[in-house]
Structure formats: structure tokens, C-alpha cells
Design a protein around this nucleic acid. Sequence first.
RNA 1: GCCGGGAUGGCGGAAUUGGUAGACGCGCCGGACUCAAAAUCCGGUGCUGGAGACAGUGUGAGGGUUCGAGUCCCUCUCCCGGCACCA
Length: 941
Amino acid sequence: MSTGRTNAEIKMQQDYKPKNIEVVAQQYWKEKLAFRAEDQSEKPKYYCLSMFPYPSGKLHMGHVRNYTIGDVLSRYHRMKGFNVMQPMGWDAFGLPAENAALANNVPPAAWTYSNIDVMRTQLQSLGLGVDWSREVTTCKPDYYRWEQWLFTRLFQEGLIYKKTSSVNWDPVDHTVLANEQVIDGRGWRSGALVEKRDIPMYFMRITQYAEELLADLDQLEGWPEQVKTMQRNWIGKSYGVRFAFPYQLDGKQDKLWVYTTRADTIMGVTFVAVAAEHPLATRAAQGNPALTAFIEECKHGGVAEADIATMEKKGMDTGLKVAHPLTGEQVPVWIGNYVLMGYGEGAVMAVPAHDERDFGFAKKYGLPIKQVIAKGRDNGFGDGSGYGDGTASGAGSEDGSGTGSGGIDTPFTIVRWQEWYGSKVVGVCINSGKYDGLGYTSAVDSIAADLAVKGLGEKKVQFRLRDWGISRQRYWGCPIPIIHCPHCGDVPVPDEQLPVVLPENVTITGAGSPLAKMPAFYETICPQCGGTAKRETDTMDTFVESSWYYARYTSPGCATGLVDERAQYWLPVDQYVGGIEHAILHLLYARFFNKLMRDEGLFGETALTSVLQGKEERTLRPKSVDEPFTNLLTQGMVIAPTFFREGAAGKKLWINPAEVDIETDSRGRPIGAKLRSDGQPVVIGGTEKMSKSKNNGVDPQVIIDQYGADTARFFIIFAAPPEQTLEWSDAGVEGAFRFLRRVWNFAYSNKNEIGVYRSRGKQESDEYCLKGLNNEQRDVYREMHVALKQANFDLQRLQFNTVASACMKILKALEQQMVIVTSDMNTKAVAITNGFSILLRLLSPIAPHITQTLWQELGYGDDILSAPWPEVEEAALVQDEIDLIIQVNGKLRGKLRVAKDADHAMLEQLALAYPSVEKLLAGQAAKKIIVVPGRLINVVI
RNA sequence: GCCGGGAUGGCGGAAUUGGUAGACGCGCCGGACUCAAAAUCCGGUGCUGGAGACAGUGUGAGGGUUCGAGUCCCUCUCCCGGCACCA
């Protein structure tokens, strides 16, 4: 090119060497304080938060994915003119530190702090635009003291209370186990059969906020629908009836309470099931060794709901009877291992005809099944008089059929039962005396009214959500700031004595909490009466720390409170990014804490008064108060292929994918895999979540060292949309590297053309550029802008993989532009200079180092972050002719190039005259012609 | 078990509201360069039949709605996330 290689010769490295340029770019950002967020600004604020990591040792791909997505959003918004805050910190308390302490004999604190140092360095090498001056570490007293402070406030307000609750107990190690530590009903270390044990714990009254947590989901327009649905179901608001079965025992009148959402089936109750720990069960077991043994058996096993729900349903008759509240009929009381004390009433009514679990139970133990609901008029029983009120024949009949003894003429089958069950909408009551013929709503109304008259029940709204037990019998957590005084009871630690510091130099034994063995920690005096007292040795659930860290980031260094007035500027978080696995617990707890903090007045004075004074005030409140996260992006997991060999006794030895070569057939289909070191075959397993146990993890550090952070980031963004699982592929990583190298090579080859225009300070208008291009060039130029338009749309909807694709398309267009022959070299240089500037800016959030370097080297400017975001030239998109597709009966038959403003009549003419259409018509007239403007013409024959 | 989600070439994925299925990348095949290989560049690539033009077929399975379905509806299968003490 002869455009004048005069004084503007640009010197730059010929080869793309990520290691060199990435260090330089990171240093540049560091010196410029490029990512320091301003606590006040003319610009709109954008608080972009990625879920903080647990410092497990080193970064894994899930982290890289999470933080790359957050960084793309942050950098994009910065260029769009926002005052961006992207903080980072450490979710530093938790079980793995104690496990590591056991394994390596290192105190949890030392292990944690050294992990943090390693991981901070790794995060920095990814080139994240993080404001490190806001870093929080939850295991440090300056963080958790505010958690303790909030605890004491909530305790005094009654929002935290104490009650007993079941935990997994390892009878050999004498320790409480996490659900994760219970494997097949046994303790992970001791192998002992786990038992349920009741211990006192502190609970947060999240149920007091259930109504608001449910209602406010509706205002979260920036949340994925699936997450909101899961939370709604978790909160589980139900409208039902709480009622009682009266009974007489030991000469006393009493009532057995139950709750049901299907009061319309109350006439079908054939037994009642209570939990093993229910007082009635305890009473019945007196002097009954068989029952005592069964209750004992029920105590085996863990407390996890999934285990309880999938275990075999067992029961035993207590021999006790209670009275049906409406008929007075005697109903047997059974103990069921699936009924849990502490959830609801610890007792349930059983209607085997209309509940799947009750049905299975009744079949197993030969309990009566009585149908009381039928589908509309067609109840399947002719005259409606016969029903299965007899005893089901029980086990043995595989199809579940069992003929009742009550003279019914229709066999009782699974199919029949399914018709009876679940027909809330179309069902009507039968065999229910005065309620016969009533539908669901009227039956419930009328039954509830009758129960109320007898004083035996009433309608009740209930939530599935339970209060949040926050006590943990562990060491590595935030100490619960309570002092147990023999005279004053549970006394919260006064503000001036906070924080209750967790001693960091301890030995972990795996049996019980070290704190409970440290008199220096727990011996204290009562702040109220001054007498000797004992400090609480339980710590808090680590979900507590992660429930408010987003707020603390707004007020780094604040020593006077949990947050200060800066919280009002920054909250709520504009964009939250994290794994879908947190869809319920963490996100619900954080929403709950936000409301707690709001009601404590932490987000400004208006908060509390507005709650009291009603709706008008609501608009005056800062937007921050109700919900913490305006937009939520739930990213998918990172998965990778697995390989193994069968070892001795069929034990699988997992082999890391990095050590395996895959063999393919001539079409590229995998036919086998071999271990590189010995050349012998290995078995190809499934593609699974990267994990230590399957040895299929890819270390991000290795990728960064080999290809650079930009390649790692680009691949991870390109390989899948953020919300889907991402399959790791070494070949894909190389593809990403090749693309970035092509970008570099293009810059190097054209550095002078681009540089000349920059150095002359020529600002050729886009219009000038377009006019000067020939048709071929203009097509290529349009392709580039079409790609940009799509990319800008995709950024809006958080689909970043196609933004990466767009960058590739734009580079291709620029390469094509280069080889087009033209006499107007000036215009061509302008087109390429403009185009490459678009490419660099569009690519910069994904691959920030290479783009920053080239932006500077080619003379576009000093700092690509302060460049404006590229916008589409509408003029470049204009086309005179467009391609329409021709269909016959919806089937593709050809293509037609027409003027873009061709009218319907003309299009129909053209379509009918189209050769393959004519052939298929064979002289007949078309039935109908559908014209979709700009897209297609469909001829219906 | 319950709640939520997913399934598209050999692979990862694209297709904005129902309108050309397979963009972009990987892999594979062919070619250029090279003594040769690697790297790089160019071309091809859903499947079946055909030399070819072309035809048929195709988005987990089965049904339905529609001029037209990857997209909407019903039934089913398999996989993944969560289930309150992993984070």
C-alpha cells in the first residue's frame, strides 16, 4: 500500500506474546487506579457484583467463568459511561478449612489466609477490573463484628430465638455432621451409622418475612423466571385448614393437630401418621418394646430431606385411636418414619385414596382406602355407591390392584386411583355425606366452617419456608455473641465488648468444637449481673456472612457501623453474577438480610418510617431498600470429559484429560483414548462437572501461563452462553488463541495505514468513507456493521458468546476489505482504521489486554476504557435489494433477489413465475399466497 | 421423592416475535507453502441416494395446532441443579 509511509512508521512487536503485554497492561491499570470506584459521580452508577469465592486453595474454572462474565459487564458499562464498582472479597469461613486442618495439621486461619494470597494473585493475573480497595475477608474481626452487632440487635428484637432442632450426630466421633459428611447414612470419617439428635440452636425468623419475600419476587424483573419460580415454590405459601382429632388418654381430653391443603378429602381419612418424636408416639411406646424399637430405628439416618423423601416408607400402629373431627369415627394412629417432628405439626392426616404417599403406605400395611373425590359426574362407579372402603389386599399385586372387601364391583387399580387423585379442579366430593357433590373450594369452605363450629379447626395460611437455624457446632465461623448466665439467661454481648474474637491458633481434632474445650474463650462474666457466665461456643452458619457482604463493599473501612451513607449511593447491586446452585438458599437469605438491614434503618432514615406510614412514603425511600439485586445472571457450571481405568476390585482410577490423547476415525468421531505416558488405552467416561474426585479439572493457571489471560477469557466467553453449562475443550482454547493472534497479525500488517490516519489527526467522516467505497467494499462494510448491531443487541441480553462470534466476523470482514482491489487507497485505509477501532472496542471487555495494547500502539488513544462504545452506522446497513426465499407449502424451493420496496402483487407474480414453483403447480391455481415482508413468499397448493 | 432447568451435525454452540435449521469456532477431508513435518493460508464438510444438477430426510421419542414448528400445546425418555449443616 502506498498511502505514505512517511513520518508515521509504527514500531510494534511482530508476534503476539501475551505474557509480555498482559503484565504491562495490568501495571498500567494499577498505576492509573483505573478501576477505583468513585463514591459520588456525575455518571450513573453501576454496581456489578460477582459471588465472592470460598478460598479453597486455588482458582478453578468456575471462578474464572464467573469473574470473566462479571468483568465483561463491568468493562462494557464503563465504556458506556457508567461509574462502575466491581469489588472482590473472600467468603472465608467454612468447613473445608477444618477438613484441611485435619488433613495437613495447619490451623484453619493460616490455611485460609495463605489461600487468599494465592488466589488474589491469580485473580489479578486474569486482568479483572476490580476495585481492590474494597476487599472484604469474612473471617476477619473487622468484618464479622458487624455481623455480631446485627445479631445482638435482632436477638433483642425477637427476630432471633432459641429452640431445639435435629442434627446429624456421629455417635463414634461425638460430633455433628454436615449433610455432605453423611454418606449412605454413615459418618464420612468414622463410618458409624448416623443418628438424629435434638440440640438447642438459634433461629432467625425468616418466616416473619415470608409474605414480603414472596410478594417482592414480582418486582424483580431482572431475575430469571426459573429462579423466581424456585423461590416461590420454596417459600410455598399454601391455603389450607389446621384441624384436630380429639382423643382421650390417661383420663385426659386432648387434641392431635394436623394441617392439610386438601380439607375436601377429610372424609377419606383412614388413619393418622405421627412422627417418631411426637408425644403420642412416646406415650404409646411406654411398655411396648416393639414400638420403642421402631422409634429407635426411626432415629437412624440423617436429616437431609432428599434422604427422607427417598427412603422406604415404614410405619407401625401405636394401637391408639383418635376421633374423626366430623364423624367421630375412631381413626388409628400410626408412627411414620417419613413424618418429621418440627415441620408443621409433626402429624399428618392420611387419605390413601387421594395422596400418593398415603396410598403406598396403606397398600403396604393393609390400611383401608376410601375414595371421596370423583372426576365431575363421571366418578367411574356407576351409581356412585360402591367405593373401596375395604382393606386393600396389600403387597403382592404388582399392578397395585386390590379388591376392597366392601362389595365393590370395580377393581381398585393404579389407573383408577390416578383418576381419583389430584383432581382438585374437576373433582367433586362423593361418599362424604352432606358434602357430596361439592367442588374443591366449596367443600373446603363448608368443612372448615363445620370444624370451626366444633372448635376443632380453622382455615390457615401456611408456608413451607422454615425459620433459619444459624447455629453451627463448629470452630471456623463467626462466634455467636451470646453469654449464658445462670441468673439472667441468654444475654447478648454488649456493643462495646464486640467483636467476640475467634481465637485463630487452635488444634482441630475432628471431634467436637475446639471452642468448647477452651476455657479462655468461654469463661466470662455476665454483662448484666457481673456473675460468672459461659460464652456461647457455637458459631454462625457461613451463609450469614454471604448474606450481607454486598452491602459492606459499599463502605470499605467503615469502623462506625455495618455500612455508612455510601451504601445509599451504591445499593442496590445493579448486576449480580453467580452460579445457579445458589438460586434458592443464598439468594433467599441475602434478600432476607436486605430487608432486615432496611428495617434496622441501615440504608437511611426513611426506611423504617416508610414501612410504618404506608404507601405514599414508599416513593421517597431510596430504591435500594426492598431488594438487594436488581438484575441476576445465573451462570452454568464448567464441565469436562472424564477418563479412567479399572483398578483392582473394579475401583476406577481417574485420569486427567490433560494426560490423554483422543483417537478419532476419518470423520473425526472419537474411537478411543490413550494415556500419553504409556500409550495404553483408557476408558472414556461421561462429561461431568470439573471436580477433584473425577480428576477432570483443568487448572486455569496452566492455561493462563501457556496462552495468556485473554485467551482463557475469550474461550470461556465464546464456548457457551453464560447461563448454560460450559464444556471445556483444549482444542477450543487453541482456537481462541489463534483468533487473538490473527487480530495481532492484522494490526501488525496494517499498522502503518492505520497509524498514518491517526497520526495525521485526520477525522474522516463515516459518510465520506461510505461514499468512497465501491459496491464490493460496501457489502463487506455492511457485514461488519450487521455484526456490530447484533453484538450490541446480544450484550443487552447478556449473550456474550455471540459477541465473541461477532468479533470474529468483523475481523474476517476487515481481512476481506484488505484484499479488495481499489484505486481509492485513502478511503480503504479509513474504512480499515474505523473498522479495526470497532473491533478493538467490541473485543476489549472480553480480551482487555491485547485490545488495550493495540489501541495504544496503533495510536487510537491512551486508554481504550475511556473510548466511547462503538455504535452502528445506520447508513452502512442500507440495502437496495434483498433476498427473499420462495416456499411451496412451507418448504424451501428457491431464492429471489428483489428490490427492497417491491409490493405484494409483484412478489406474488414473481413467486408464481418461479421455475420450481411453476413445476409444482403444474397448471393449477395456488390456493393461497403468504408474503412475509422482507423474509419469504409461501405458495400454498 | 419433591421443585427448577436442559436435549439441535463427529464436538461446543447459532437461529431476537412461529418464517432459509446448523452462524461462529473446534474436529475432519482436500489443496497451497515445505526436502519433509509442524505452523500458517485457501477450499469443502448435517445425513441418505446420485457422477452431477438435484431429490429425500433432519433439532431426544411419540402425537397435535399452523400456510409454515428447533421455537407453541399434550404425553414420554434421559441428563443436570437444588432440597434447608458443602459453598
